[in-house]
């Protein structure tokens, strides 16, 4: 905490002490308390690039803590396009002032259109120049979702905008700010909140070679699958409504690192595989990347016996 803020905390403490009828000897303690409150509230700027807002909506689905608790007790969410009351030029002022001061966390949702900079703009500037400027001044950057972490669908084969991930942007621009990747389409709210709290309270969490926190991405979906015993017994579903391992219907849980089969979605309500749908690898670096890699390969489906009902 800089001297300037310490002075401003002492000034406010004097006002509060006067209000509460306390002697001046209490000032340092009050200033400490205020500093703690402000320090706990890590400033966060959230920038959406080539995104669908799905990760933001998924974050709102967090139950404990809920979004209101997150905003009032953990972070100071200075800008988020879907939630901020501020509009237009005010937004750009909040962002530029915060970036100018440094000492904030940056969350980026979506990929960056490196080959066509005008394909994503905000406040009359390209998103790519804004992300580069903010990343250089941020304490740490969180790439939220598969698009930001790996490029995702906007960066898929044949894409017209030359979209790239945030790690790729960092490499191109030689940015050395600590970067954490949270793939998933969308992210699970627990992955983001767990990571944020870890960064704020304990520092950068241990990550793997792709920058993913090990606490969430250490194991394969397949190894934690509710149908794992079906796989071991070689009982394979041949139609979407059948019981059994979904491997022959295109499941790529054996290639995808994430814990959603055990954590489940929407506060433990359900998961893709539990709902009879193969894992499409939405948290994988390969998600939708190749045009000829079908999510539900028909050569497998069509070769199986037709089952009505």
């Amino acid at each position: 905490m800089s001297e300037i803020s310490r002075r401003s905390f002492l000034k406010i403490s004097a006002r509060l002490a006067a209000m509460m009828g306390l002697s001046s000897s209490a000032l340092p303690q009050i200033a400490d308390a205020l500093e703690q409150i402000a320090a706990k509230m890590a400033p966060v700027i959230w920038i959406q690039a080539q995104s669908c807002s799905g990760c933001s909506i998924s974050l709102l689905n967090s139950d404990h803590p809920g979004p209101a608790e997150i905003i009032t007790q953990y972070i100071s969410l200075l800008f988020h396009s879907n939630i901020s009351t501020t509009t237009g030029h005010q937004c750009m002022e909040v962002i530029s002032k915060t970036v100018g001061q440094g000492d904030f966390l940056l969350a980026v949702e979506g990929s960056v259109p490196r080959g066509m900079p005008n394909a994503c703009k905000m406040g009359e500037k390209t998103i790519s120049e804004q992300i580069i400027a903010a990343s250089k001044k941020a304490k740490a950057v969180i790439a939220v979702g598969t698009c930001a972490s790996f490029g995702g669908i906007p960066a898929a084969e044949n894409n017209p905008t030359g979209a790239i991930s945030i790690p790729a942007l960092f490499k191109n621009e030689s940015i050395s700010t600590p970067l954490i990747s949270l793939p998933g389409c969308p992210i699970h709210p627990d992955w983001l909140i767990g990571t944020l709290i870890h960064v704020i309270k304990f520092g950068i969490p241990p990550v793997d070679d792709k920058g993913r926190p090990k606490m969430f991405y250490k194991k394969l979906i397949h190894d934690q699958c509710p149908r794992f015993t079906d796989y071991e017994r070689e009982k394979f579903a041949k139609s979407f409504l059948e019981e059994g391992c979904l491997f022959k219907l295109g499941c790529i849980g054996a290639l995808t690192y994430a814990d959603c089969t055990i954590r489940q979605w929407n506060s433990g309500t359900n998961s893709c595989i539990r709902a009879g749908a193969p894992c499409i690898g939405c948290a994988s670096e390969h998600f939708a990347s190749k045009a000829d890699f079908a999510l539900y390969p028909r050569n497998i489906i069509n070769s199986t016996q037709q089952k009505k009902g």
Binding site: C120, Y296, R298
Partner: peptide, 27 residues
């Protein structure tokens, strides 16, 4: 903001479309 979903979908398996087009919008 432009991503080019219609361009990306060309030549893919038709069943990919319901998963890929959902990612047009998270709302």
């Amino acid at each position: 903001m432009f991503r080019g979903f219609e361009v990306i979908l060309k030549g893919r398996d038709p069943l990919d479309a319901q998963q890929i087009t959902q990612r047009i919008c998270g709302v």
